[in-house]
């Protein structure tokens, strides 16, 4: 694959190789993990820059037109790294949760990356299949691929995992009293890509609503009826919502997401039974914030109206 890397006496790599991590999909599915791990191994890590309008435009230009938005964005981040580093890390994500499977698009990602990247760049990949292999084992494989010592790998794994735990445990801000409470759900790469979700979350808060983001730290979801990992975590959370504590759910979906096209029907079913209003916002390349703002305002107004109506009736 590439030449043997020299090691220093402490087992870390002597000539740190540059390795890139696309700030997309894998980055948000395992927040903090890869960056920390690769740095701890002694690599020189570059994460592609946070998304901007230009990233989206670039994605629209270079990526397959029928991809979902997150995969398009992945392509744009990959292209950005292509000139900057020797290696790019793209794991083959088959499952991020025991008993579950990942979206099939993630499995083909390293192969697509290889097909798309100009020559001279090596795509480093390992299989992530938490259904079969513990994450730590996949990380060890990655470490060995990069020629690191077992002790270094061990230590790097520990640190990376605690970074992951910290990043996943998003603290929930205390609820403002007398405000509406919304749960915001969506794949981690939709929720935590601040270019995509930032303006929406700000708008929600500006309407005087407490918005809590769904957490992916909770790993207890069962693979029925939803087998796709992240979707199952969200479905599970919705099932456990106590109606009296929640006034609404906002689903940040992305354009052309195959998984969402199926599971949103199931989410809606759960929420209908609990009588919690739900609104789906579809993130796409061309969405203007103005339209989103109007829809959010209308959604919040209708819920407030309902509450007032209920209050006067009782």
């Amino acid at each position: 694959m590439f030449g043997k890397l020299k090691k220093a006496s402490n087992g870390k790599l002597l000539e740190p190789r540059t390795i890139g991590i696309p700030r997309a999909l894998l980055y948000y599915l395992y927040p903090g993990l890869w960056e920390t791990f690769l740095k701890e191994l002694g690599m020189q890590v570059t994460v592609s820059a946070p998304g901007t309008r230009k990233t989206i435009e670039q994605a629209g230009l270079i990526s397959e037109s029928e991809h979902c938005l997150p995969v398009k964005l992945f392509d744009a981040h990959l292209a950005e790294l292509a000139g900057l580093v020797e290696l790019i890390f793209v794991p083959r994500i088959l499952s991020t949760l025991p008993g579950h499977i990942a979206c099939p698009k993630l499995g083909a990602l390293p192969d697509c990356a290889r097909a798309q990247c100009p020559g001279g760049i090596t795509i480093i990949t390992v299989d992530i299949n938490e259904n079969r292999t513990p994450l730590t084992e996949s990380m060890a494989q990655l470490g060995r691929l990069l020629n690191a010592d077992e002790t270094v790998i061990h230590q790097a794994t520990e640190r990376a995992l605690s970074a992951l735990r910290r990043a996943r445990a998003v603290p929930t801000a205390p609820r403002k009293p007398d405000a509406l409470n919304f749960l915001v759900i969506g794949h981690p790469y939709n929720l935590h890509d601040s270019y995509l979700s930032g303006p929406i979350l700000q708008k929600i808060e500006s309407l005087g609503v407490n918005a809590e983001l769904v957490s992916f730290a909770d790993r207890t979801a069962l693979p029925e009826p939803v087998k796709w990992d992240t979707c199952s975590i969200m479905h599970d959370r919705l099932q456990r919502l106590v109606p009296s504590e929640w006034d609404g759910v906002i689903h940040l979906s992305s354009f052309n997401c195959g998984c969402d096209s199926i599971v949103s029907t199931l989410y809606q079913e759960v929420l209908r039974e609990k009588e919690i209003p739900c609104m789906t916002l579809v993130l796409d390349e061309h969405a203007g914030q103005a339209g989103v703002d109007t829809r959010l305002e209308a959604f919040v107004d209708s819920i407030k109206d309902q509450h007032e109506h209920a209050a006067t009736c009782h």
Binding site: E64, E66, H67, C68, V71, C103, P104, K105, G107, A108, D111, C112, N256, G258, C259, S261
Partner: peptide
């Protein structure tokens, strides 16, 4: 939009 086919 076919998930497997478009992804390849």
């Amino acid at each position: 939009g076919c998930m497997p086919e478009i992804s390849v």
